[in-house]
Every structure is written in structure tokens, then in C-alpha cells.
Write a protein that binds this DNA or RNA. Structure first.
Lengths: 140, 140
DNA sequence: TGTAAACCTTATAGTAGCTATAAGGTCAAG
DNA sequence: CTTGACCTTATAGCTACTATAAGGTTTACA
């Protein structure tokens, strides 16, 4: 099985697979007589594992930790649990940030007259209000 | 007003300000006799505008568009409205992706026994289930 | 048999939006 | 007069790839 074939079954791109190998997230693949990378079933499992982990938001470094657990028969499920629980917190924080952005954008949109005029509440709001957010809530 | 001072009042870092100038998001600052950048009130407004825009999720490129509108007295508020409305859609898509991640992570967490055992539902799930997500929902 | 498409290889540069570092010049206080 | 806080530029680094260049290989088909 060449890299293109395993890319198709794993859902990763060939470039990503080579990249993962280059950074040591994957072991160096065996090579055929022509120098091509050769993969087998166990590699498919590894790649799918990685793709799944990336898809739910784990960073490359976190994937490295997950891979170590995946390949360690002496692991404790509690260790894995903690890793995933931390990730959940991170994702939730990220969601909160985006929800704040969404709220502000919605407010901007409803304040805007959305017409041919130059006067624009969005521009005014971005330019002035909340100018000192980063200061100690001076709210003059 | 030197770069450090305007960084404090605008909430940006000095590095970010120099970076914005370097990529043309900000006009080149005037210089004092010593070569230091010198800023005044109008610059404060520009920097705060940028910081606000970045904070609600606009990319550098979108900030460039917003800046053009900000500085164009002939703008139409409808143009600004459209830009912000597009951004809102982008942010909402991003939220949906993260909510999917959150759902999957929660499911993984509740499936895990969270103890001293090596057997782990999280590892099993990442390794196997949904292996063919990227294929045509083959769901064997 | 020839050739063209579809693979594969490596190395390098680019993406976004900065942050960090190095190596230096300037300025204000004590 | 020196210490520390500021400023300058240029360059490298970060994440997680993607894109490109410049080539070698394999396969299918006429």
C-alpha cells in the first residue's frame, strides 16, 4: 500500500502523512525497492487514530501524548480521561470567546442602518466604544 | 507619544504595532529626531479601531477593508453591514465546528471508566469508530 | 514500443498573526 | 556616570500544514 492509497483510506492528505513522519508523530515508514513508502494495516489504524484526534481538536503535541497512551499497554484509562477532559475545557473556552465575538457582531449589525448613508454605527462603535477594555473597566 | 505609550493606551503590544506598520495595515509613523516613532491622538483612534476589529474576529485582511471604510467619508453603511454580516457567518460556522468537538469529547469522557485499567473506551473510540467519516457514510 | 498520466521522491517556501531574540542606540534618574 | 528602561532593525520561531519545484517510477493504452 503506497502513501496515496493509505491517504485515501485514512482521510489524511499525503502531504500531512509525510509531515507527521517528518516531525516524528509517525514512525518512519518502510520503503519498497523503488524508495516509495509502504504501509500496512497497523499503519492504517495509527493514521485513523491521528485523524480522529486532530478532528476533535487535539494539537499535534497532544496527539503525541495520545499516541503514547495508545501504544502503551500499561496505560491507565484515568490518564487518557484527564487528557480529554483538559481538551474539553480548552474547547469550551474557545467556544466562549467565539460566542462573545458573535454577540458583539450581532449588536453591531443591528445598530447599523444598512443603507446608502456614510454614517455608520458599526464604524463608530469599533472606533470608540469599549476603547479601554484592556484597562481596569474605567467605563467613563 | 512613543510606541510604548501608545501600546499601553491602545491595548496592543509594541511588536504588534510595528508589525501592522510593516505590513501596511498602518501608515508609517512619523519619526522624532532620535528615530523613534511618534504618535498622536489620531493614531490612538486608529489603533483602538484595529484592536477592536481583531478582537471580534476580523482577520488582518478584513481589518484592511474595515480601515478603508473607516477612512472613507463616502462609504455606505450597507457595505460595512455586509462585511460584518459575513464575519458573523464565519464565526458561527467556527462555533458549530467547536460544538461538534465538544460533543465528541463529552461522549468520550462519559464512556471512559477513568480508573487504573489499561482498557480505555476513549482510545478504542479514537482508533476505530467513525473510521470512515470521510467516506460516503459507509457505516458498516 | 512509446508516451502520457498518475503516481512517488525530496527540499524549500509560503500561509496567519504575531512573539521572541539578538545586537545595538537613546534617554532619564540618581 | 552608570543603570535601567526605553527605542531601533533584522531575523527566527511558532502551528499545522499546503503549495511548489524539479525530478524519478509505474501503469495504461495505442
Amino acid at each position: 500500500m503506497n502513501i496515496g492509497a493509505i491517504a485515501r483510506v485514512s482521510g489524511l492528505t499525503t502531504e500531512a502523512i509525510r509531515y507527521y513522519e517528518g516531525i516524528g508523530l509517525l514512525p518512519a515508514a518502510k520503503r519498497g525497492a523503488n524508495g516509495y513508502r509502504v504501509y500496512s494495516g497497523v499503519d492504517i489504524a495509527r493514521l485513523i487514530f491521528l485523524r480522529q484526534a486532530r478532528k476533535v481538536g487535539f494539537t499535534i503535541d497532544q496527539c503525541r501524548q495520545l499516541r503514547n497512551l495508545y501504544e502503551n499497554p500499561r496505560r491507565k484509562s484515568a490518564t487518557v480521561h484527564a487528557l480529554v477532559a483538559n481538551k474539553l475545557v480548552e474547547v469550551e473556552q474557545h467556544i466562549h470567546e467565539l460566542e462573545n465575538m458573535r454577540r458583539v457582531l450581532s449588536e453591531l449589525i443591528s445598530a447599523c442602518s444598512n443603507d446608502e448613508q456614510a454614517g455608520c454605527a458599526i464604524i463608530d462603535s469599533l472606533a470608540g466604544s469599549a476603547a479601554s477594555d484592556h484597562l481596569g473597566k474605567a467605563k467613563t
